[in-house]
């Protein structure tokens, strides 16, 4: 028996909107630790890793580890039917073939349940080792989204370079080139507007903007995004989910053959 009650149901709505276009089907894994997912996009270039820790739920019951295969587009459709202030409860029986999403309005005057069929998914799981990254950039998530969107009107790839001067986002396309440099800025009044650059070694990596733009659909989840880079390693773009966990995107770089 699985029963997870999330008072801030909008978090789950935002998570689904962030990943449904990147990944079609995925297994949600439930354990005593929490509700998690690891899935790659169909071309196996990008990976989504989600963790919602059990402590973040108002009620978390998971009698035994359970893996539930879901079509993310269909799950997103169902969660779209929840109000932004609704409490969302996810329920499933051990060995059952469906999952129920229950939506309660804050004053309990409307209660809805949506049942969705589960599916068997043969997913490939990657072992991602803990890595020391050469450069970690923390910046406003809306700024990161703006940069990725702007650069994708010029070119298809972005070169992210971190030096002691700052972080540079560059692209080139048929019509010309673009460079955007952000300097460390910790002097702002609000911490969510800060840009913080931790650099061990200068690093420069190239990524497909199509994926970066897809990751920025998670912008409503967090005011800040963390971009972790190491030469010849996938970049990690992380959105923290308030006191519950994270949504991380991994993207393989483009490298010289």
């Amino acid at each position: 028996m699985l029963e997870l009650r999330l008072v801030q149901g909008s978090l789950l709505k935002k998570v689904m909107e962030s990943i449904k276009d990147l990944v079609n089907d995925a297994n949600f894994d439930c354990s005593a630790t929490g509700f998690s997912l690891q899935a790659m996009d169909s071309s196996h270039v990008a990976l989504v890793s989600l963790l919602l820790r059990s402590e973040g739920f108002e009620h978390y019951r998971c009698d035994r580890n359970l893996s539930m295969g879901m079509n993310l587009g269909n799950m997103a459709k169902m969660l779209k039917c929840a109000g932004n202030d609704d409490i969302v409860t996810v329920k499933a029986d051990d060995g059952g073939d469906c999952v129920t999403f229950m939506f309660e309005s804050p004053n309990q005057d409307k209660i809805a349940d949506f049942e969705m069929k589960l599916m068997d998914i043969d997913s490939e799981h990657l072992g991602i080792p803990e890595a020391e990254y050469e450069a970690i950039v923390r910046m406003p998530s809306a700024e990161f989204a703006r940069i990725c969107k702007d650069l994708s009107t010029i070119g298809d790839t972005v070169v992210i370079s971190v030096t002691k001067e700052g972080v540079k986002f560059s692209t080139r396309g048929d019509i010309g080139t673009a460079n955007i440099v952000l300097r460390q800025n910790t002097s702002v009044d609000k911490p969510e507007e800060a840009t913080i650059i931790e650099m061990e070694t200068p690093v420069s990596l190239t990524f497909a903007l199509r994926y970066m733009n897809s990751f920025t659909k998670a912008t409503p989840l967090a005011s800040q995004v963390t971009v972790s880079l190491s030469s010849e390693l996938p970049v990690v773009v992380e959105y923290k989910i308030a006191e519950m966990g994270y949504l991380r995107f991994y993207l393989a770089p483009k490298i010289e053959e």
Binding site: M40, S43, H44, V45, A46, L47, E124, H125, L126, G127, I128, P129, T157, T206, A208, E232, L233, P234, Y250, A252, P253, K254, I255, E256, E257
Partner: peptide, 14 residues
């Protein structure tokens, strides 16, 4: 020219 490698080129399957 630069080539897009899959994630499997960087991480092991479990």
């Amino acid at each position: 020219s630069q080539k897009q490698f899959p994630l499997k080129a960087f991480y092991a399957m479990t």
